[in-house]
């Protein structure tokens, strides 16, 4: 195929590196927020539940792009700080997908049968031990598919950082396009292909780790 020419690839791959880096860092941040908020929403203390629910509802109730713009353009004005596009992107993606992830954490923990909590109570485990040794390990297996889906959504969501001029793969594509508008179809085709490969690889990794976790439990 002539129009899918390979000379477009090097600059796009440079951008893809940024996209993947951003994806990985944001997944880690989002995972931390998901655990924090998911467990926090099940806390015994009403104040912790209220704070975490507020965070989750705000970030699920508005949209990622608005959060990204707000953190990149408005927050620095409010606090009088400078945020790099990368920092703003990680914060926005981490908080946004952390809020969605907290729902996965919460529902998985609630899905562990009540008998498991009762058995660990009967063995005189402390509330922390019940969570750490009995409930969480079982909930963890149930969380994996949900986390897998969110990771794909997060990867797709990174394309929006182009709009705050972070030099990700989309940004590189649009820059190439500004040099030669006639090659737009080829550039966009490459972008779709690269995103698809990245998503698919992520899916495979998730499936592999799921199989690894489930293995050995009969």
């Amino acid at each position: 195929m002539d129009w899918l020419s390979l000379d477009l690839l090097p600059p796009l791959l440079k951008g893809l590196k940024i996209t993947l880096l951003l994806t990985v860092i944001s997944i880690v941040v989002a995972f931390c927020f998901a655990l924090l908020a998911g467990l926090g929403r099940l806390s015994r203390f009403a104040i912790v539940r209220a704070i975490m629910s507020t965070y989750v509802e705000i970030f699920r109730g508005t949209s990622l792009l608005i959060q990204l713009f707000w953190i990149y353009f408005a927050l620095p004005m409010l606090l009088d700080v400078r945020l790099s596009a990368m920092t703003a992107a990680v914060i926005a993606l981490g908080l946004n997908y952390g809020a969605y992830g907290s729902e996965v954490v919460r529902s998985s923990i609630l899905a562990v049968p009540k008998g498991q909590i009762e058995a660990s109570t009967a063995l005189n485990m402390t509330p922390y031990q019940r969570m750490r040794r009995v409930i969480f390990p079982q909930a963890w297996v149930m969380m994996l598919p949900g986390f897998g889906n969110l990771q794909i959504e997060l990867l797709k969501g990174t394309s929006l950082v182009y709009l705050i001029t972070l030099a990700d793969v989309t940004y590189q594509g649009m820059t190439l396009r500004s040099f030669d508008i006639s090659r737009t179809p080829a550039i966009l085709a490459w972008l779709l292909i690269l995103y698809f490969i990245a998503s698919y690889t992520l899916t495979l990794i998730v499936r592999l780790s799921e199989r690894k976790v489930v293995k050995g439990r009969g």
């Binding site: 794909i152 797709k156 969501g157 394309s159 929006l160 182009y162 989309t170 649009m174 396009r177 006639s182 737009t184 179809p185 966009l188 972008l191 779709l192 995103y195 698809f196 998503s199 698919y200 899916t203």
Partner: peptide, 20 residues
């Protein structure tokens, strides 16, 4: 394929590639 690629790029295809 549609599910695994960003909406943003799909929108660009609709407005940039379709006319061209």
């Amino acid at each position: 394929f549609i599910r695994s690629t960003p909406l943003l790029i799909q929108l660009f295809v609709l407005v940039f590639v379709f006319p061209q």
